[in-house]
Structure formats: structure tokens, C-alpha cells
Design a protein around this nucleic acid. Structure first.
Length: 261
DNA sequence: ATGGTAGCCGTGCTA
């Protein structure tokens, strides 16, 4: 089973680019971030006509997550537990049953800039809620894929120019420690372990500004965390870097894993 | 130090 994550930065603006990538990459399931629309604005029919099951958790203008799946999605839950007052649409979870049942969690972690400030406080509080919920996911002892735009650069080698990020919410020590705290629960970073001694990257995001893509000034912030039961089934993982160079691209590119599941 | 780009029921905000 091929499972992917793709921050598409606006579903309507990205419809051609996403449709093309789906056809050639042929994932079984993809979690989307930054759909930037309410549920009613998501072009469900476009995708159902192409054979996708669609579940969304949208919000007007900002944020919003969704899952497209070839197989039916079961037990769909929307929103990250732990704060009933949180109105930002950043989390969705569902089960897909192939050879075995796999729980897939799609997330769009808060950016947190500027830091310090209320947005950074929200990011860290959200990460603490994620840490708590990740424990309950591990306790199911299912294969779980916890994936999406984490908005955290794990290490200096995950940025082309780490010195440019030292005061940024994506790279501050507290952000990195919070991600590490979750990973150390027992999650496997599927892209990192594919090339554990990589000197740089692979990057998953290049800013639209300042010629970041032609200069390859990228960062790795889209991650695939696997529970032990999912990691045991890991066959391959990758980043579809070339998607960034196409017409009307997102600023992120797809990241994927293939599981024996 | 600045400004550069992209998307959105938008002319400012978020990233």
C-alpha cells in the first residue's frame, strides 16, 4: 500500500497539478493539507469520478485537511483531541483496510511564526496535544502512519541554509525538541531512515519567494512517522522532488511510503 | 536590511 502526504496550498488552484500527480504516482491513499476551503468548496465529484473516496475537514480560506483513498475509509475522525475550543482544521484520521487495517493520521501542524508570540504558543500547545494523542495511537498496536506538514525542521541538515532559520518557529530548539519527544515514543521517520547519514535533505518545501526553488534553498518539514507495526512493513519511501518544478506548483512536494500492507 | 511570491468568498492575512 502506497501512502502519501501532499501540502497542496489551495485545492482549487492545485487541481490540475494534483490530478496529474495522482495519475502518475498512483498512491493508494494521500493526505492533503492546506485545502484552504470549507468542506462544501472541495471538488469531491472531480475526485470521486476518478475513483477516489474523499473525506475532508475544511475551513474557510486557511488550513483544512483531507484524505483521498482508493479503498473505503472507516472510522473517520476530525480534529486533534485535547482542546474543544480549537477551531482550526488541521487534523484528520481514518482507517484503511488492505491486507491489514492501517490507521492514517493527516496533520497540518501550526507554523508558529512570529516567535515568540501567541502563534508560537499555539504551535507548542498543539504539539503537546499531538504528543498525548500519539501515545494513544501507539497503544492501539496497529500499523499507524502519522504524516503531514509538521512545520518543523528536525536537524540543521534538513535545511539548505540552516543559519537562515535560527530564529524561525520551524527551527527553534523548543519546536525541534517537541518533535523529537514524539519521535522518541517509538516512531520511525521513514524518509530519514532511508538515508540515515544524508548530509542534506531531502527537502520537501521551497518558498515561493526569493528564488528558493532555482537556488535549491529548501527545507524538510513534511514527515512520515511510522508506528513500530507500520515500520516493520516499510518497503520503500521517497520524496517526489521534481513536482516542484512543474507548472503552477505547490510550495511543498509529495512524500510517500510503500508498506507491505 | 529589504523584499521577494502565492492563495484566498481576499484590498490584509497567512505562509
Amino acid at each position: 500500500m502506497k501512502i502519501a502526504t501532499f501540502n497542496i496550498n489551495g485545492i482549487r488552484a492545485r487541481l490540475p497539478a494534483l490530478t496529474d500527480w495522482l495519475a502518475e504516482a498512483a498512491p493508494d491513499l494521500v493526505v492533503l493539507q492546506e485545502i484552504k476551503t470549507v468542506d462544501e468548496g472541495f471538488p469531491v465529484e472531480h475526485f470521486s469520478d476518478l475513483g477516489w473516496n474523499v473525506v475532508t475537514h475544511g475551513q474557510k480560506s486557511f488550513n483544512g485537511v483531507a484524505i483521498l483513498s482508493r479503498l473505503p475509509l472507516e472510522d473517520v475522525t476530525r480534529g486533534l483531541p485535547g482542546d474543544e475550543t480549537d477551531e482550526q482544521a488541521r487534523y484528520i484520521e481514518a482507517t484503511v483496510v488492505g491486507q491489514v487495517a492501517v490507521r492514517v493520521a493527516g496533520l497540518y501542524l501550526p507554523n508558529g511564526n512570529p516567535a515568540p508570540g501567541p502563534k508560537y504558543d499555539y504551535k507548542l500547545a498543539w504539539m503537546e496535544r499531538l504528543r498525548q494523542h500519539a501515545l494513544t495511537l501507539l497503544a492501539t498496536e496497529m500499523p499507524v502512519v502519522l504524516t503531514g506538514d509538521f512545520n518543523v525542521i528536525p536537524e540543521p541538515r534538513d535545511a539548505a541554509h540552516p543559519e537562515q532559520w535560527v530564529n524561525d518557529a520551524l527551527f527553534l530548539p523548543e519546536s525541534r525538541a517537541a518533535l523529537r519527544r514524539i519521535e522518541f515514543q517509538g516512531w520511525t521517520d521513514a524518509i530519514r531512515i532511508r538515508d540515515p547519514y544524508a548530509k542534506r535533505g531531502p527537502f520537501t518545501f521551497w518558498d515561493f519567494q526569493a528564488g528558493a526553488w532555482p537556488r535549491d534553498n529548501g527545507i524538510r518539514i513534511d514527515h512520515m512517522l511510522l508506528s513500530p507495526q507500520a515500520a516493520d512493513r516499510l518497503r520503500d519511501a521517497g520524496v517526489d522532488r521534481e513536482v516542484r518544478g512543474r507548472e503552477k506548483p505547490s510550495d511543498h512536494v509529495p512524500v510517500w511510503v510503500e508498506l507491505d500492507a
